[in-house]
């Protein structure tokens, strides 16, 4: 693996995203939502807006951005430049994921500053870190399965919705949703955030860590499988 080539792809993506409003808007929405939830909705428990904003950030940005970036390269055939270059497929995937990953870490830091919640930062970042990897891997799967950018919507939207809405509804005590939520890493991510804000330690969130960690492993395995079967071809 060659770090310089990974950074080359990272840097190219960074230059590209600056003038891609489809994507820059995605980065701004979670900031806006968090602000609204924390400040304008009465009766929202403190920290809830932050947790929801974080989840939105991780799921929407984490999945949508890699999915779009991969599908766009396939649609416009620029992927050929990458594939037919000394870069290996793994370097391409990492280079593409790195930008989203960095962006999410930076924006989540921003959200913490914005809301002034600084309790158990290490736990919060562990949760963000792992769930983001899950989300990016899932987004890449969507990108690999989509022949073009339009298709990412068709394939990706059900996934985003399930990952976002189910945990949302289950914290509102809707019963079926609670059952469903029990298999989603985003549900456990919300738990983790809540516990962290309440000041609890790692010792009380083994289940959360196990489920999120397990989802990361599963998502990476599926990504690897699809990648080996299909690569960047349509």
């Amino acid at each position: 693996m060659n770090i310089k080539r990974i950074l080359a792809i990272f840097y190219k993506e960074l230059q590209d995203i600056k003038s891609n409003s489809n994507i820059t808007v995605m980065f701004l929405i979670p900031i806006l939502l968090t602000y609204l939830w924390e400040n304008l909705i009465p009766g929202m428990p403190s920290g809830m807006g932050l947790s929801l904003g974080m989840m939105f950030l991780i799921v929407m940005v984490g999945m949508y951005v890699p999915a779009m970036l991969i599908a766009e390269e396939k649609e416009k055939n620029t992927i050929e430049v990458l594939l037919f270059s000394p870069a290996t497929s793994l370097e391409i995937l990492i280079g593409k994921g790195l930008l989203t990953f960095t962006a999410i870490l930076i924006i989540s830091l921003l959200l913490l500053v914005l809301t002034g919640i600084y309790s158990q930062l290490f736990i919060i970042f562990t949760g963000v870190f792992l769930t983001t990897i899950f989300s990016i891997a899932t987004g890449m799967i969507v990108g690999l399965l989509s022949p073009n950018q339009m298709a990412t919507g068709v394939i990706g939207t059900p996934v985003y919705l399930i990952l976002l809405l189910v945990p949302n509804l289950s914290i509102m005590d809707i019963e079926i949703m609670q059952g469903l939520g029990k298999v989603l890493p985003t549900y456990y991510f919300l738990n983790m955030m809540r516990f962290a804000i309440e000041g609890k330690g790692f010792a009380e969130m083994y289940t959360e860590l196990a489920v999120i960690g397990g989802s990361v492993v599963i998502a990476l395995l599926v990504l690897l499988y699809i990648f080996q079967r299909k690569g960047f071809r349509n």
Binding site: K4, R5, A8, D16, S19, F84
Partner: peptide, 27 residues
């Protein structure tokens, strides 16, 4: 070196950015 039938350059990047990216990839 290959010139493909259909231009596959990064549309949102400048000429220079496209070419520099290629140089970085090939080191």
């Amino acid at each position: 070196g290959v010139v493909p039938e259909q231009a596959n350059l990064y549309e949102r990047l400048t000429i220079k950015q496209n070419l520099e990216f290629f140089c970085r990839l090939y080191q």
